Computed example of a mutant assay.
Amino acid sequence: MDVQAAIKSQVTSNPVVLYMKGSPKFPQCGFSGLAIQILQACGVQNLVAVDVLADPAIRDGIKVYANWPTIPQLYINGEFVGGSDIMRSMYEQGELQKLLAEVAA
């Protein structure tokens, strides 16, 4: 399976997917750590976290897939939401909690 197909499969078969550097327990950059903190604050239980440092093909491929140059990248129900800055803004406005509540329901 090519990288783009693998990414598409990951984001469409899981309700919440975060492409990040490191793991939720051990984020390898501040932005990934912030993304995890926000998701935890929203009460996300069904998170699929993909460590892009473990697979260079995924690390490069996810930037192409979303046409977004940075990591982390959050996907909810197959839709690209954004990186940690967008997540923070949405969280502060209450929008991210609403999106995630719909997924959890």
Rank of each mutant, 00 (worst) to 15 (best):
C42D: 13
V50M: 06
Q45R: 15
I58N: 11
R88W: 06
P56Q: 14
Y75V: 14
N77D: 13
G30N: 02
M1Q: 04
Y75G: 12
A57G: 10
V103N: 07
Q97W: 00
A6M: 11
Y19Q: 00
Q28Y: 03
S13T: 15
W68L: 05
Q28K: 13
K8R: 15
Y75H: 12
G83Y: 02
Y91M: 00
E95D: 08
V44P: 07
P56M: 10
L39G: 04
V44E: 06
Q28R: 11
Q40R: 07
L39H: 03
K8F: 15
R88A: 13
P24E: 12
I71T: 11
F26P: 04
Q28H: 01
K21V: 11
I71S: 05
I7D: 05
K98H: 05
A66V: 01
I76H: 05
Q40W: 00
I76M: 10
M1Y: 02
A49V: 10
E79G: 13
P72E: 05
L39D: 02
S9D: 15
Q73A: 03
V52R: 10
V52S: 05
V11K: 09
G43S: 07
N14F: 00
A54N: 08
K98W: 02
V16A: 09
Q45I: 14
N77W: 03
F31K: 09
D2N: 15
A66H: 02
G83K: 09
L47M: 11
V11M: 04
A104L: 11
V11S: 09
P15T: 04
I58D: 11
Q40S: 08
S23H: 00
L47A: 01
K8W: 09
Q4L: 14
V17Q: 04
G94H: 08
L53R: 00
P15K: 03
Q37I: 06
Q93A: 14
I7S: 03
K98N: 11
A35W: 01
I7W: 01
G78K: 06
V103Q: 08
Q4C: 12
Q37E: 13
K21C: 08
L100M: 13
L96H: 04
P72A: 06
P27H: 02
D55V: 03
K63A: 06
V16W: 02
A49S: 13
V64W: 06
E102L: 07
G61L: 04
D2H: 14
G43H: 04
A104E: 13
C42E: 14
Q4P: 06
S32T: 05
D60W: 03
Q10E: 07
S84M: 04
R88I: 07
I7L: 03
P56H: 08
L18C: 06
M90I: 01
L96Y: 03
A105V: 02
L99I: 13
A54K: 12
P69F: 04
G61P: 09
F26G: 08
K8E: 15
M20Y: 07
N46D: 10
R59K: 07
C42M: 09
D85G: 11
P72V: 12
I58K: 12
A105M: 03
V48N: 02
F26C: 13
Q97P: 09
I86M: 14
F26R: 14
P27I: 03
R59L: 02
T12Y: 02
